[in-house]
């Protein structure tokens, strides 16, 4: 398990990294925390000619709140987000979700941007960023553009980033006052990728009922919103039977596949159970 030969670049400025990606095109791969890419290299499943190491780019490492918006540099370590008091206060569902990513050693190296750009279909961060309406900032030779989360995660291990584009930062808008939240994950072992994970955000709507956000991951090509479940919670509130109904609707909506870890029918059961439980938990956290 040793990688094939590759050239190694180690820029300290975003502009230099972007220039290197532009120069080498599809032959280059950016290296963030390396928690997914390095195993892929060692298995010889990817064979880039050039690795562009982003770890020395200080400008991408921030975790900060500006005007109520959480701004995370693409190279911020997952552990830094997990430990940030401002994140725990304003976006506790993000703190909770990061705690489900692998183990502390991996979170110390793994980055937020790396996980989002890798877009493993059972990873926690893409799901929670979709639930939180995050916006990704990408920089390429033509300049900078913003990509909304639903447009960013395109398919299994694929994103809207072009080969010569670099994810530089993530902006997470403030959660409205009174939002109740829940992040529930089922995994065989602590730290494994989710068999299924569910994010639920609930808050009272102005005209009665609820604003509901339900995101499920681990059931196919990555995180998906489940409008059918959201509609049930919005219309019926989050009493026990409505939560059960939302779970059933979510299980109906997803399209899991059989894989060595679990058959499709089992993942549907997990979606139903976790969505119901997450909805109940989120409801208890709501404040009028």
């Amino acid at each position: 398990m040793k990688p094939p030969p590759f050239a190694y670049e180690c820029p300290t400025e975003v502009a230099d990294a972007v220039a290197l990606l532009a120069a080498h095109g599809a032959d280059a791969r950016p290296l963030a925390g390396g928690q997914s890419l390095v195993p892929l290299l060692n298995f010889r499943l990817v064979r880039p000619a050039v690795l562009v190491d982003l770890n020395r780019i200080a400008a991408l490492a921030h975790v900060a709140v500006e005007d109520g918006t959480l701004r995370i540099g693409a190279m911020a370590r997952q552990a830094a987000v997990e430990a940030a008091p401002a994140v725990a206060r304003g976006w506790p569902i993000l703190t909770e979700a990061v705690g489900h990513i692998a183990h502390p050693q991996i979170r110390n190296r793994g980055t937020v941007g790396g996980s989002l750009a890798h877009n493993d279909p059972a990873a926690e961060l893409p799901a929670v960023m979709l639930a939180l309406d995050a916006e990704m900032t990408a920089r390429g030779p033509a300049g900078t553009r913003a990509i909304a989360a639903p447009d960013f995660f395109t398919d299994t291990m694929e994103t809207a980033l072009d080969a010569d584009e670099l994810l530089t930062g993530i902006a997470v808008p403030a959660l409205p006052e009174g939002t109740g939240w829940s992040f529930r994950e089922a995994a065989r072992r602590q730290g494994d990728f989710a068999l299924v994970a569910v994010c639920v955000l609930l808050r009272p709507a102005s005209g009665g009922g609820l604003n509901a956000r339900v995101v499920v991951t681990g059931t196919g090509n990555g995180p998906v919103r489940v409008p059918a479940a959201e509609a049930i919670l919005a219309a019926r509130g989050a009493a026990g039977d409505a939560c059960e109904a939302a779970g059933a609707a979510a299980a109906e909506a997803v399209e899991p596949m059989d894989d060595p870890h679990a058959p499709a029918w089992y993942r549907r059961r997990l979606v139903a159970a976790l969505t119901a439980r997450a909805s109940m938990e989120a409801a208890t956290g709501m404040e009028a």
Binding site: R188, R189, Q190, G191, D192, F193, P260, H261
Partner: peptide, 9 residues
Amino acid sequence: MDYLIPTAM
């Protein structure tokens, strides 16, 4: 990742 040896957790 596929051979699930239990950890201390």
